[in-house]
Structure formats: C-alpha cells, structure tokens
Design a protein around this nucleic acid. Structure first.
Lengths: 227, 227
DNA sequence: TTATAAAGTATTGTCGACAATACTGGAAAG
DNA sequence: CTTTCCAGTATTGTCGACAATACTTTATAA
C-alpha cells in the first residue's frame, strides 16, 4: 500500500517541470510581455528537447499567457486595459457562481479551515503592512479555496488553471499591491460568513462586488499611470 | 494580395486537420466514451506521426473531451449526470454574461443578420419537424453568434472552443432532439428582441432561463432513460 | 528612391528511434 | 487459494534530424 500526498500530483514529466518555470518567468515579467518566444533558445536554456517544450507551450497557450500562430511561432501575451476588463468580466460571473456553489457544497470543516486561514492572513497583514507579495498570495489563496469549494471540476479548471496565471500577471506587472488590503480582508470575511450561513445568494453578490471593487481599484491605478 | 475567408483560419498544420476528425469521432461516439486512446493506433489510422497526434490530443484535453494522466495515457471522457449539471451551471453564467455584453456591443447589422437567421431556422423547422440535426445545429448557431457578439475574446474562447464540443457530445450521445424545438425557437426570438432593444439585463435573464429550461429538459430525458 | 522579387537564413512542423515508465502475466511464498 | 513479487511487454515521454513554412536581406526594375 502506497501513501501519497492527498491532492498534489508529482508532475514528474519534464514538460511539467519546465512549464512552471516558464509560467513564473512570464508572470514575473522576466520574459517581457509581447516578446517573441524562440523554441530553440528556450529548449537550450532549460536543457530539454523541443518536444516537451512544445508541450509546455501548448499549456501556456491554454492559460492565455502566450499566443501562437501556425508556422509563425508564439508571443507572450500583450497586457492591455481592454484585456483586463474582459478578464474581470468573466471572473465576476464565474467566482460569483463559485461562491453560490461553495455555500452549498463546502464541508463545514473546510469552512472552518478557511476561517482560520483568514485569521492567519489578518495577523500577517498587520505585521507586514503593504507588502504586496503576501497580500497577493493570501488573496489568491482565499479565492482558490472558495473555487475548490464549489466542487465543480470545470469551474475549478477554468479559474485555477486557465485564468489565474493571467490574473497574477496583471497584478504583478502592473504593481497592484496598494491600500485596498484591509478592505479586501473585510470583504473576504463577509463572503466567508455568508458561505458559513449557507447563504449562496448573498455570497454570490458579495463576491461579485468584491471583484468589481478590485477591478475599479486597478482601473484607477491604470488611469494614474497613463498620466 | 491574397483573398481569404473572413473568419476561418486555414488550419494547414496536420495536427489541426486530425484534431477536427478526432473531435467529430469522439462527439459522435465513434470512439466510445470512457475508452482508452492508443497513440500508435490513432497515428497509424490517420497516417501521421505521434508528434502532431499528441498536439491534437493536447487540444482535445483542452476542450474536456479526453482526460490524460502522465505516463499512463488518455481516455475519452465518461459522460455522467453530474458532469452535465456542472457543465450547464457554467453555461448559464457565461452565456448570460454573453447576452448582456451582446446587447451592448453587437452591431445593429449583426443583430439584423441574426434576426434573419432565426426566420430561416423557423421555416426549416416547419418543414423538417423534429429532425434533430437541424435543430441542434441551428440552436448552436444562435448561441454561437450571441457569444461572438459579446466581443470578449476570453468568453468566446471558453464557450466556443472549450465547452461546446462537450455540449454537443452530451446532446448527440444522449439523443437530445425532442419536442422542445418550437419553444426553444420562441425563446431565441425573445432573447434576440431583448438584445435588439439593448436591454442587457433582460437578455441575460432570458438566456439563463433558456439554458436552465434546456437543462431540465435533459434531466427529464435522463430520468426516463434510467427507468 | 521606392517597390517588387528572389535567394538565403532561421524557425516551426513532422518524423522515426530510443529511454523511461506503466501495465500484464506468471511464479513463489504465505 | 490468495497475495506478493518479479520479469516481460507495451505504451508514453524524450531526443536529434529532416522537411516545410515564414522571415530577412539583397538585388533588380520601375
């Protein structure tokens, strides 16, 4: 009998291993947005053949980090105001749905664990005021768990695997840390309370507002940057 | 100067060509649901190497038609009641959103074209009463156009490229033709009217109801089949 | 000088072969 | 007889090389 970790899969294939590295590089901006991707170059850089690299690129395309045109190659996605709007329009709907489902299907135990996670975030936040990385990670962590709580595999896949790397990319490269931290925590708290009360409708509404507020926050930043 | 068709891209790569064939085979059930996929076998069948085949398989996974496990291979997805519910939960949200956006962003010309398409469908429907293929194709066509009208690339990609093949697979393999045809056409009409009036909120609501009704219709069929 | 065309270069798409991993059947131990 | 272990087989993952396509540069003509 073999004991293995509950959720995470080993990801032993070298394509997987390289994928996460390129994902990080793109999200962090080490590979510049809009730049062309050279398969031979990347293959050399990571000491692998082009076959697993192309597998990785296919998955990068899947999460909208690169765009491929047949016979012409791949480019890192170009960030834009419009793109961000389009992204958040979908997040609003899908994460709202996730909340509604989470309120119905999350185990009481899961809710309690999420509760304690939030408390933990709060103390972290007090100590490291405004440190963007923790805010960012914590925020995503909360959203992740709620999405997982929906128990809908398609929804989980779409949000966690396909959309969230792009969300992170926008946040990182446009420097979204900001003073919204404490308010975001309060909103998380309210959402979780609604879920705890099994009030899906309210949780849905609150999540939509939460994301909408987040979007408006980013819009303001963008407007400032363009001045 | 080269003249090419307005939307469709040539898809010259052999991976693309094979992809559509396998997609069709899976959707139509020629390759049975739940069955294992053998790369060497399929490669021989289509007279290509394993490289482009694997590229095609990667995209099949993307649209949820197959599931791959590292080092173990791919299986055609197993249809289930739960899976259908999960699928329609997402469709409801996303296509509702698509309607709201379409009401805002569709060109008046596009709306008129869609109007005439509906009239066309109506006459077809009168002639070929209950012929499932036309109903199916027509229905999807309407939904497609509304989704395209949203002008949101992520939304379009998710619905048209990632979810709709699976929707078709459920319809085809579970034989969803049925007596809902005329009512569906009326609902399409009402949705389009709302879009024409630029009433996004109403279009959203009507589309959600439309899909919800469609889901309930399927649920009934399923319940009958299980007897 | 600008625009067009052709040759050359580089990159992507595809192939066949090898290596690593997973599945299958049978033998040995309990 | 059941279970566990092991060897054999088949399948997937990876590699390097070749073919097909796209991009670049140079030369030619208007």
């Amino acid at each position: 009998m073999e004991v293995l970790s509950p959720i995470a899969k080993p990801a032993v294939t070298s394509a997987d291993r390289v994928l996460v590295q390129i994902q990080r590089a793109v999200v962090e901006g080490e590979i510049a947005a809009g730049s062309k991707i050279s398969e031979p170059e990347l293959a050399r850089k990571f000491n692998i053949s082009r076959a697993p690299l192309r597998e990785a690129l296919a998955r990068l395309e899947r999460c909208h980090l690169i765009e491929r045109t047949p016979n012409a190659g791949a480019r890192v996605v170009q960030l834009s105001y419009q793109g961000l709007i389009h992204l958040y329009q979908i997040r609003e709907e899908l994460e709202g749905l996730a909340c509604r489902l989470a309120a119905e299907y999350m185990a009481t135990e899961e809710i309690e664990q999420l509760q304690s996670l939030l408390d933990q975030h709060l103390s972290h936040q007090r100590v490291r005021e405004g440190e963007s990385y923790y805010q960012e990670a914590g925020d995503l962590d909360f959203h992740y768990r709620v999405i997982l709580g929906s128990k809908n595999p398609y929804l989980i896949n779409m949000l966690c695997d396909e959309l969230y790397y792009l969300v992170r990319m926008y946040r990182v490269q446009m420097g979204m840390n900001g003073p919204r931290v404490s308010r975001a925590f309060d909103e998380h708290k309210a959402i979780l309370t609604a879920i705890g009360n099994r009030d899906g409708e309210l949780a849905d509404l609150l999540m939509r507002r939460h994301i909408s507020a987040s979007r408006k926050n980013i819009e303001i930043k963008l407007a400032q940057q363009e001045k």
